[in-house]
Simulated scan of single mutants.
Amino acid sequence: MKVDWDIFCTVVDNYGDIGVTWRLARQLVAEHPCAVRLWVDDLRAFERLCPELDISASQQWQQGVDVRHWPADWQATDAADVVVAAFACQLPHAYMEAMAARERTPLWLNLDYLSAEDWIVGCHGLPSVKFQHVQKYFFFPGFQPGTGGLLRERELLVRREQFQANPVAQREFLQGLGVERAPEARLISLFAYENAGLADWLEVMANATQATHLLVPEGRVLGDVARWLGQPELAVGDVQQRGALTVQVLPFVRQDQYDLLLWCCDFNAVRGEDSFVRAQWAARPMLWHIYQQEEEAHLDKLEAFLTLYTNAMSPAARAALEGLWRAWNSGEGMAAAWVGAQEHWPELQNHARAWSLEQSLRADLAAALVQFYLNWI
Rank of each mutant, 00 (worst) to 15 (best):
A57H: 12
C89M: 04
A45T: 12
L43S: 02
C89Q: 01
A86K: 02
F87C: 10
P92W: 15
V65T: 01
V82E: 02
W74C: 01
E103W: 08
S56K: 08
Q75K: 09
E103G: 13
A76R: 10
A101S: 14
Q75I: 04
P51I: 04
A100E: 13
M96P: 07
R68E: 05
A72E: 14
D81S: 03
A94F: 12
W74L: 01
Q62H: 14
Q90D: 07
A94E: 10
R44T: 14
A101F: 15
A98P: 05
C50E: 14
Q62I: 09
V65M: 01
A98Y: 03
V84L: 14
D81N: 03
T77R: 13
Q60L: 06
A88W: 12
A98C: 03
H69N: 04
A80G: 02
A85Q: 08
F87E: 08
T77G: 00
A57G: 05
C50Y: 09
W61T: 08
I55Y: 08
G64V: 09
A76I: 15
A85D: 07
A86C: 13
W74P: 00
A85C: 07
A76L: 13
R102T: 12
L43Y: 03
A85L: 07
A86T: 03
P71K: 01
G64W: 10
Q62P: 01
A45V: 02
M96C: 13
D54R: 06
P71G: 10
P51H: 09
A101Q: 14
D41C: 01
H93K: 11
E97P: 01
L49K: 05
R104F: 02
E47S: 15
V83S: 04
